[in-house]
Structures are given as C-alpha cells and as structure tokens.
Design a protein around this nucleic acid. Structure first.
Lengths: 140, 140
DNA sequence: GCCATGCGGTTGTAAAGTGCAACCTCGTGG
DNA sequence: CCACGAGGTTGCACTTTACAACCGCATGGC
C-alpha cells in the first residue's frame, strides 16, 4: 500500500515540522511562561487538581524537571500547592486566580491566531481535523 | 461558533502534546542525533544541497545554533561542507553516504512505528489526516 | 506491630540547546 | 574605493533536562 506509506511519511513530516516551530512560537507567547510550563498549567486546570507525578507521567518528563517547573509556577503565583489530605507524601496542585486568568488570556490569543490560520477551512474540515488529531493523540 | 472553537482548542492541545513528546522520543531514536540535527539532515537531503542560512530561516533558529549543529553533523560524518563556488562567503551542505544511510534507516524505523500506531485506521482516514496536516503546515 | 520496599518530591550535578553580541570574511552598490 | 550587508564562527550566559542520591510517608508481609 504505497499510498498509505506516502501518507504516513507526510504525517510524520508535518508533525515534526510543527514540533520544531512550537518551541519558537511558544517562547514569544507569554512573558515568563514556556511551552512546558504553560502546558503544565493548562493540564492542572483541566484536571482541577493533580499531583506532580501526574504531570511527569503525562509529559514524559523526569520528576525532577517537573519539580523545578512547578516551583517556578508557584513563584510566579500561578498555582498553589497544598498537602494531599489522602496521602501526606504528595501535594495537590491547583491553578490560582492569576493562573486561570493568564490561561484564559493565552487561550484567547491562541484562538485568534488559530482562527486566522484556519480561515478558508470549513467547520466540517476543522472538526474532522481535530477528530483525527485527538484519535492520534489517544494512541499513547 | 462554539463547536469550531472547541475544535481549534483540541487541535492546539494535540499538536503541542505531540511537540512535547517528539523531543523525548527523538532523544532515544538514534545515538548522537537529536530532533533538530535529524531534521536538519533531512532538510539538507530534501534540498540536495543548501546553506546554513537556509536552515536557520527554515527552522527559525539563530545562525549560531545552526552553525554548531552543522559542525556536530560534520563531525559525525553525516554531512559534508564545501565552499559555495558562487559565493565564497557561504558553504554548501550535502548529506554524506553515511548520512543518507542513517536517514533511510530512521525513515524505516519511523514507518514501522507509524504503521503500528495507525492500525485500525482505514486508508481513507490516514490519507485524509495527512491531507489536513499538509494543508495546515502549508499555512506557514 | 514492625520493617522492607516503594512512591512522591527535592536538590546537586552535568550535559545539551539556544539566543545575543562581537567578530571575521567576502560580496555589492554608491 | 569604501561603506554596508550577508554568511559563519566563537564566547558567554541562561534554560531545560536527565540521572542519581536523598528524605519523608505509605503499605504489605512477617
């Protein structure tokens, strides 16, 4: 099935092309927030509360790396840490009011950029694309 | 159009999720080759020959970074540098035989991993997904 | 009930990637 | 002919990251 292989090559190429540029664009997204810290903050918001170990597993990062990034986020006042009542070893991370506000602003900015990028795409195509990406991401 | 915005959010999230993991997986792909150096080698192959400045522009990297990575690739024997006959300031980069072989091997490995990942997808879905990604990538 | 094992987190250390700035060389246009 | 700009290199500082050693707490087998 050569067509399928050609499609797989294209998928690989485009996904890595995106990965290469993601870092660069994220760097100029919001001051003091990198792609990783932003993603972490986003996941904490998405989950409502979670532990650092969850972040490490989700992002495939070492727990030491997560620990430092979480410390940075806390110093910026974007998340709060409280001991987990169910397990004194761990701590529950939650977004602060400032963190939520920043996320909302960033999401709005992002959405504007994306709206522009997807002009010319029909609603159906956008949704189908999102569907494929989600399906792909679920394969982890 | 809330559905469309939700789809855009999902696209953003999945693309960045991919970016996060790409680096991790690339790190353990081939010894001594990172995602960036690999991508550079791939672009040099794709173009046949190019200058370091082309790489910098394409990857949105500082020319100093490219210079170091190119040096690394040359030390690994994966590319060759020759002065540009048309402009003595620049140099033409070309993949070496080893470089081409490594790229071919990596592509094969990648393809195997992707075949596995896309089991359960119909040919039509794979091609449509590739089509969307290409269309997205063309927006740069 | 007690200790071995394991998990969640932190800190030290080292390696790698990156951007900025200064500099060199070469080409180009006034 | 000289000033300016482009391609590359190197020095420097900063950031990210993984690995390893360590601490505190939890849990299961004895």
């Amino acid at each position: 099935m050569p067509d399928r292989d050609a499609a797989l090559d294209a998928i690989q190429r485009e996904l890595t092309a995106f990965a290469r540029r993601a870092r660069h664009k994220a760097a100029q997204m919001h001051p003091g927030l990198t792609l990783v810290t932003y993603s972490m903050l986003d996941l904490v918001k998405e989950r409502g509360s979670c532990r650092a170990a969850d972040l490490a597993a989700h992002f495939m990062l070492d727990k030491s790396t997560v620990s430092r990034q979480v410390t940075a986020l806390e110093k910026l006042g974007l998340i709060t840490r409280e001991p987990d009542p169910d397990d004194q070893r761990g701590q529950l991370l939650r977004p602060s009011a400032d963190g939520l506000r920043l996320l909302a602003e960033a999401a709005e900015q992002r959405r504007l950029a994306f709206r522009e990028r997807f002009t010319g795409w029909s609603d159906g195509d956008v949704e189908q694309f999102a569907h494929y990406l989600t399906r792909y991401g679920a394969g982890d």
